[in-house]
Amino acid sequence: MKSKVAIGVDIGGSHITSAAVDISTLEIIPETTYSVKVNNKAAKEAILLNWSEAINKTLEHVSKEADVNIGFAIPGPFHYKTGLAKFEGNDKYENLYNASIPDELTKYIDAASVNMRFINDATAFGVGVSAMGKAKSYSKTVVVTLGTGFGSAFIKDGVPLVNSEDVPEGGCLWDKPFKDGIADDYFSTRWCIKRYFEVSSKQVHGVKEIAEANDAYSKQVFTEFGSNMAEFMIPFLQKFKQEIIVLGGNVSLAHEFFLPTLKQKINEAGLLVDFEISTLMEDAAIIGSAKLFVSDFWEHVKNDLPNL
């Protein structure tokens, strides 16, 4: 594989997507994107076989004359420096617990020599959107992903900040205390479903159903969501002094219902900040993970990769 090409991989809870990225331009190479459904409760070997299926499809379209470089956007708990999976108690990929992905997955990859690097999926998304979206024009960006969990990244000049005085510990927000729990309990699909049931006695399966209901109950849920999010985030925003906030993830598709409240509360706190709803989705995570093989970027991040 030519040195200017790296494979970017986005590991989701239900599927994996792989694509080849030209790391000199940070553009996905056409006709190299492949997705494969994954049963995250399957045996270790079955999961790794699924993962390799997408990666090997991508590899069919690129030269493998030299080392194959693969960057992974992967959720935690995970040892990002070593590639050791620590999934436990999070209801997905638990059969990979204590598996070394570089050692185990390489057996299934159709290449003689493979280099693997790893980054948190929300961080990879943040790196991607700051490289290719509206945020590309800004120096300081806060990226938030809203879905099955609450992901975040603090980006300065394209580089995620993990150990910096102006960002929360670990450079992430999901585990920080809020109300009766942590942020992840409040800014996720499950909170929206739970809260909608509490106020309406109606059981739904996703945020899309709540948005489509467009009733007094859904409006109450989304207003509370936006208000809570502002209350939680404002202290961190005041410290970081970002210029733009980028929202991604499936819950962000319902932004028209909660974003006005979020914006209003942030403005009332005296913060002037732009917003972007990213449409890049997994493409951003793929580009962010492939960027691990851009030498200057790797030098910036390699010592700050968290072991979560």
Results as ranks from 00 to 15, higher is better:
Ile234Met: 02
Glu224Leu: 14
Leu259Asn: 09
His255Glu: 15
Ala269Arg: 10
Asp283Phe: 04
Phe257Trp: 12
Gln264His: 09
Val221Lys: 10
Val301Ser: 10
Ile287Glu: 05
Val301Thr: 09
Ala230Tyr: 08
Glu224Gln: 14
Phe258Cys: 08
Pro306Asn: 02
Gly249Lys: 00
Glu282Val: 10
Ala290Trp: 03
Ala285Gln: 01
Gly249Pro: 01
Val273Asp: 05
Thr279Val: 07
Lys239Thr: 09
Ala285Asp: 04
Phe225Asp: 12
Lys291Gln: 10
Asn303Thr: 07
Lys265Arg: 13
Asp304Cys: 05
Phe258Met: 03
Leu292Asn: 03
Thr223Val: 14
Gly248Lys: 02
Val273His: 08
Leu272Glu: 12
Asp283Asn: 13
Ser227Gln: 10
Ser295Met: 12
Glu282Leu: 03
Val301Asp: 10
Gln220Ile: 13
Glu243Asp: 13
Gly288Tyr: 11
Glu282Ile: 11
Glu256Cys: 12
Ser289Tyr: 03
Phe225Met: 09
Leu280Ser: 12
Phe275Trp: 15
Ser227Arg: 13
Gln220Pro: 00
Ser252Asn: 09
Asp274Arg: 05
Val273Tyr: 11
Ile266Asp: 07
Pro235Asn: 01
Ile286Gln: 09
Ile277Asn: 07
Ile244Arg: 02
Thr261Gln: 13
His300Trp: 00
Met233Ala: 09
Val273Leu: 03
Leu280Lys: 05
Ala269Ser: 12
Phe293Asp: 05
Ile266Phe: 04
Glu224Phe: 00
Val246Ala: 01
Asn228Trp: 00
Met233Trp: 02
Ser227Asn: 00
Gln242Ala: 15
Ala269Phe: 06
Ser227His: 12
Phe236Tyr: 11
Phe232Ala: 10
